[in-house]
Simulated scan of single mutants.
Amino acid sequence: MKWWKAAAVRAIKTGAQVAIGVIGATTVFTAVDWRVVGGTVVLSIITSLLTSLAGLPELSEGVEK
């Protein structure tokens, strides 16, 4: 259970960082396309969760998934 909580926190932080970057980049060039922002954020959250499968430095070894 600790793994899921740590992975979720990391994924949400990643999604927020990506959202800020995408919104900032799109406002420089054009109006914000919220479908692009949403899709990019969802993809970054999935990628973060998959990357977390390799391990989370926030947790010590041997923690159950």
Score class of each variant (00 low, 15 high):
G15R: 00
A8K: 14
L43K: 11
I23G: 13
S48I: 08
V41D: 01
V63L: 02
I46P: 01
D33P: 07
K65M: 01
V32L: 12
A7N: 12
T27Y: 15
V37H: 01
E58L: 13
E64L: 12
W3E: 07
I45H: 00
T30L: 03
G62W: 11
G24R: 15
T40C: 04
R35I: 03
G62T: 09
T40S: 02
S60Y: 04
S48V: 07
A8E: 13
V41S: 01
K2T: 04
T27M: 15
I20E: 12
A8G: 13
T26F: 10
K13V: 08
T47G: 14
S44G: 05
L49V: 06
I46L: 15
I23Y: 12
G24F: 05
I20M: 13
T40M: 09
G62Y: 13
T30R: 04
K2E: 12
A31V: 10
K65N: 08
R35Q: 02
G38K: 02
R10S: 06
K5F: 06
S60M: 10
A7V: 01
E61H: 12
T47F: 04
S60F: 07
A19V: 07
A6R: 08
T26L: 14
T51M: 07
R10N: 02
I23R: 14
L43H: 06
V32P: 02
W34R: 14
T14F: 03
